[in-house]
Design a protein around this nucleic acid. Structure first.
Lengths: 140, 140
DNA sequence: GCTTGACCTTCCAGTTGGTGGAAGCCCTAG
DNA sequence: CTAGGGCTTCCACCAACTGGAAGGTCAAGC
């Protein structure tokens, strides 16, 4: 299979697949004309990568997940560990975004949004909130 | 004021402040020894930037927000517009993360996390989910 | 008067995960 | 034999910094 074929199969852009080879996630063969040649196992791995990335795993996580996937003697605890750490990062990110959201909703609601210059949003941004602490204490 | 002083005042690292100068967000003066000299208004602007960035506004948004802030004849509608667009981006991001989270929680729950190699997480990642559509259809 | 250390300067490189584009082979169909 | 599409490499760029090296400046202490 050429790169276009695996791209179609995996749903990943050819550029991305080349990038994955660059960072060592796939190691396709080369045919005599210099073209990459992908085996079934490579196509499979790329699908795995696509799915893992869609779930937000980092490239490093993907590297580890693939290593575990290929290790018959893995302990599922190792996989679960990676997933749980990722879950924690996601939860942190969601919490952070919700904090921002709460503040923004509050400000947007307070702003008339008309032709006049008076704006509670700008007023808030211009206000000293000591350190960055105020954000951490914002109610969700 | 030297850069260290505004850094302490604004809570921003000196490196970040230099970067903000690079991208034209602040324009401190220079004293004869080459040191940046920040006026009160610069310190104020940096605090504004710190707060805006903490709320997740992009550098480009910040540029526009500061321009509006300094424009006495602004319409608050313009500010509100920027904030609402940002809010929308945040909502999209939260929705995306929640989708990932739901899938991950499901998978983590299903995984024994012991010494055995059997792992529903890997099994899922290795499964073909046609296109990338499956994720968009995942229940929140 | 000299050294030490804190502060300041610039510039270059790296981060994450790709994406865009240019220049140039390769291959097949008409 | 030429046109097209697919493939190759390499280089640059995105956001928003961050780290580090090499070196200038300044105030205090001995």
């Amino acid at each position: 299979m050429n790169i276009g074929d695996v791209a179609a199969l995996s749903g990943l852009p050819a550029k991305t697949i080349r990038y994955y080879e660059d960072v060592g996630l796939v190691k396709p063969l080369r045919s005599t004309n210099g073209y990459r040649t992908f085996r079934e196992s490579d196509a499979h791995k790329l699908a795995f990568l696509g799915r893992s990335r869609a779930l937000g795993f980092s490239i490093e996580d993907c590297r580890n997940l693939i290593a575990l996937y290929e290790d018959e003697k893995r302990a599922s605890a190792e996989v679960k560990d990676i997933a749980e750490q990722h879950l924690e990062r996601i939860d942190d990110k969601i919490a952070e975004l919700k904090e921002m959201r709460a503040t923004l909703v509050h400000l947007v609601d307070a702003c008339a949004g008309d032709h006049r210059p008076d704006c509670p949003i700008l007023a808030d941004l211009a206000t000293k909130h000591r350190g960055e602490e105020q954000l951490k204490n914002t109610a969700l």
